[in-house]
């Protein structure tokens, strides 16, 4: 992470000096930090709201019912996570992702990471295999209906904006399947080593 971040900045500055874009870089650095803070402020509201809602669902037992429904999936992907809270948050994140509720998915995902970190018995600065698997699954994108994309297609005069739903699901299934296979192989190699 240290090298990645520092490298990105240095690469940007060196490349920018070659292409003569120093002014743009200054502007970008300052603008981006401003943008990040305003994003955080927006996110604070959303985060408070969704984690609050999730807490209600947790205390009423709704989240538990959902995570029980997802039990086969969770047990398959995360066989070593027995702890209730971590499973509930992961289930919440997966479901929110499926329905394209990105704003609800992130809070659940972050809470799930916190719970997984509590279960981390080794070095706390190193990811556990559950964390890796959970993130890869997240990045493989589980979305069923790409609402934004359909809206953009409509805006630009597509004859059938929703035609991509089927292929989209197929492509998502393929990327998610690849993710699952990758995680399984990586976890298996780790056990053997």
């Amino acid at each position: 992470m240290d090298y990645l971040w520092g490298g990105m900045l240095i690469l940007g500055i060196v490349y920018g000096s070659m292409t003569g874009r120093m002014a743009e870089i200054t502007e970008a650095a300052l603008d981006s930090s401003k943008e990040a803070v305003s994003l955080c402020i927006t996110m604070t509201g959303v985060m408070c709201f969704w984690v609050g809602m999730m807490k209600i669902a947790q205390e009423s037992g709704l989240l538990k019912a959902l995570s029980n429904k997802l039990n086969p999936v969770l047990s398959f992907m995360f066989p070593d996570v027995k702890e209730e809270k971590a499973r509930e948050y992961m289930a919440g994140n997966i479901i929110a992702n499926l329905f394209g509720l990105g704003w609800a998915a992130t809070p659940a995902g972050l809470k799930a990471m916190e719970e997984l970190q509590k279960l981390n018995r080794g070095d706390k600065s190193t990811a556990t295999k559950e964390m890796c698997a959970f993130l890869i699954l997240n990045i493989s994108s589980l979305q069923l209906i790409p609402v934004n994309m359909i809206a953009y297609r409509g805006q630009y005069g597509s004859a059938d904006p929703a035609m991509i739903v089927g292929p989209g699901i197929a492509a998502t299934a393929i990327s998610t399947m690849t993710a699952v296979v990758f995680c399984k192989i990586a976890a298996w190699r780790e056990v053997r080593m």
């Binding site: 990471m113 970190q117 600065s125 295999k129 493989s140 690849t178 990586a186």
Partner: peptide, 23 residues
């Protein structure tokens, strides 16, 4: 990862790239 202060991400990036490439 930053939310839980993890710095060594191990096989997350290769896995993510793999899934993305497949997609």
């Amino acid at each position: 990862f930053m939310a839980v202060k993890v710095r060594k991400t191990r096989w997350t990036l290769p896995g993510a790239l793999c899934a993305t490439a497949a997609g």
